[in-house]
Every structure is written in structure tokens, then in C-alpha cells.
């Protein structure tokens, strides 16, 4: 039987059991991608009370989880559909959602359309500490929307995204979702990976692996 080489579909699985809530993914993202002060492509939200690292419940019956959140690279991406300028698009190779900053008109329609609130806008002239361009990609100008690119510049060099390789908890698995044998496909399949806001029909390429069942004394 002739093998048809399927197109790659990059995806990520985030293991909520392993996630430490340390934000290393977020910081390395900022550094890798020259993200300026004030903006974050990658965040680690607290599933709990009303503040960072605050639990839910009443002492001592408490609960807290971490929820790393960045662009979900939806297969049916609402941001791509609404972008009037074709600035946001779905790249065929890997199915990643990217922004062509040279086309973005800065209308922020994609921000309104994104169910995951992961897009950020360069409201001001980007300010950096340190005050030079760090990281491995060119920074974005004022007035455009930006977000996680799955470190497309690394993918194109055959490397995994920085948040994946830098996660000290080894909580992120990256790979080709169209390859049933890739670690990410296996993890999603065997651990029942779920997509965020699945009911929105956006079909994210980012999956979450749920926490283990605890065994209290």
C-alpha cells in the first residue's frame, strides 16, 4: 500500500499534574521572542481563588491548580476568520496560527474573537528591559497584535518551542498530531487529553493532560 505523507499538524500537550506554576515557560517565551514589558504571550493562571496562587475553598479544604495558557493554535481559529487584513493566518505546514505583523492594521478584532484571551497588543512603543532587542526573533512594532507562534523560528530549524524545552517540570510535550506515534499523540490518546473550551468548536491543537487521582492516607 502506498504511504501518503500526511501534512504535519503541530500540537502540544500540557501536563497539569507536572506543572509547578513557576512561569518558566512564560519567562523563557518573553526572552526567546523579544516580548516587551507589559505583554505576556504565555501565562500560568491559577485555578483557585481570586488571586495568583490563592487556593479555592475553605481552610483546610483547599484546592489549587495551575493552568498554563498561550495561543491554542486552533484548527478552526476564530482569529483567522475575523482578521480583515489577512494578517492572522493559519500556516499550512504545521497548522500553526501566525500573525504577519507587516499586514496587521491593529484593529484588535482578533483579540475580541479569541475565546482564550491570549492575544496582546502593542499599545505603546515596545519598552524593553534590558533596553535592546533580546531573544531570537525580531520584535514587533507598536500598533500590532502579537501572540505565541509555537516558536515558529525554532520549528523551522527543527527545534521544539522554547517553553517545551525549558519547562523544568518536563510538563510539555510537543510534536506532530497527525503522526499517531508521536509522543504528543500518544500522550493525548493515552491520558485522555482535553481541549480548552471544546464547546466553542475551535479545535485547539493544544491539549491538557489532567491531574492524577490522589491517594489520601
Amino acid at each position: 500500500m502506498a504511504m501518503t505523507k500526511t501534512r504535519r499538524k503541530f500540537g502540544m500537550a500540557v501536563d497539569l499534574e507536572r506543572c509547578l506554576g513557576c512561569w518558566t515557560c512564560a519567562v523563557v517565551c518573553k526572552e526567546e521572542n523579544d516580548v516587551p514589558m507589559g505583554l505576556w504571550w504565555n501565562r500560568v493562571l491559577t485555578e483557585g481563588g481570586d488571586g495568583l496562587d490563592k487556593p479555592d475553598g475553605t481552610y483546610p479544604h483547599l484546592d489549587l491548580d495551575y493552568l498554563p495558557l498561550a495561543c491554542q493554535h486552533c484548527e478552526d481559529a476564530p482569529c483567522v476568520k475575523v482578521c480583515p487584513a489577512e494578517a492572522t493566518y493559519k500556516r499550512e505546514d504545521g497548522g500553526i496560527v501566525l500573525v504577519d505583523y507587516s499586514k496587521c492594521i491593529g484593529c484588535r478584532y482578533c483579540m475580541a474573537a479569541c475565546p482564550y484571551s491570549v492575544r496582546v497588543f502593542n499599545w505603546a512603543e515596545p519598552q524593553r528591559i534590558p533596553d535592546f532587542s533580546y531573544g531570537m526573533v525580531e520584535g514587533r512594532p507598536r500598533g500590532v497584535v502579537e501572540k505565541c507562534t509555537f516558536c515558529v523560528h525554532r520549528l523551522d530549524q527543527g527545534l521544539e518551542p522554547s517553553c517545551v524545552v525549558s519547562c523544568p517540570a518536563q510538563a510539555r510535550i510537543f510534536g506532530d498530531l497527525n503522526d499517531p506515534d508521536s509522543p504528543v499523540s500518544v500522550a493525548v490518546r493515552e491520558r485522555g487529553g482535553t481541549q480548552m473550551l471544546a464547546d466553542k468548536g475551535t479545535h485547539p491543537q493544544v491539549y491538557y493532560l489532567s491531574k492524577r487521582r490522589k491517594r489520601p492516607l
Partner: peptide
């Protein structure tokens, strides 16, 4: 062209 151009994504440095 439909779809983005590579340079517009932010040049790799």
C-alpha cells in the same frame, strides 16, 4: 497572495 509571507512573522535573528 493569500496567506502570510514569511518575513512578516518576525524575522529569526
Amino acid at each position: 497572495p493569500r496567506g502570510g509571507t514569511a518575513h512578516g512573522q518576525g524575522r529569526a535573528l
